[in-house]
Amino acid sequence: MDFDWNVIWKNREVLAGGMLLSLKLFAIALAGGIFFGTLLAMARLSSWKVLSYPAAGFVNLIRSIPFIMAIFWFYFLTPVLVGKLTGQQGEAVGPFTSAIVAFIMVESAYYSEIIRAGIQSIPRGQPWAAYALGMNYWQAMGTVVLPQAFRNMIPIMLTQAIILFQDTSLVYVVGLKDFLGAASKAGQLSGRIVELYIFVAFVFFIICFGASWAVKKLQAKYAIVR
């Protein structure tokens, strides 16, 4: 077949807009996922069963269903919950908000497993020593355990971030115009779906390959320091 690569230049604004949405979703999901993932991991490791059981249940539930199923769940639940909370009909909640809620929820479950392993990699003696010095739980966690845990976890958290960036393409299923969604739309309008999908794959590959190469370099550097 004959290729017409001009179609990519012609659709540069649509594609850039899509990439912007992908990056926005990525950044919010990453920040939210790490924040709530940390809380979830702390809850799971808590000696209070009222905290650890629901946290474990949530994480295992999310991890045993497909990402797309989770997106559909939150796409359906977010407007209902928002409606219940504000007392209004959930009409105001758009697909982007629902997608963000879904991504934060799913990523917090994934990140909590990484962070839990990181926290558990710190010897028990350290929090005990912190308590013995008179620190409370938040001081011991915030100044002794978590800083070391995060340092150990940096490579694997970055790897998960790359996977998260790839997973943002899944919002396609709720019709959002992320990078893939925008390319898909442009491809249908111009009848040049082949060129656009190849371009999308190429861009994702360059970004993700570059990022994983950088993570590998970083990992090597850390390995020497430790």
Partner: peptide
């Protein structure tokens, strides 16, 4: 490297459409 650095959904479209 190639198969890990392209999102699964994009690969799905490459096989099916492209």
């Amino acid at each position: 490297e190639v198969f890990r650095n392209v999102p699964l959904l994009v690969q799905m479209f490459l096989w099916y459409f492209v």
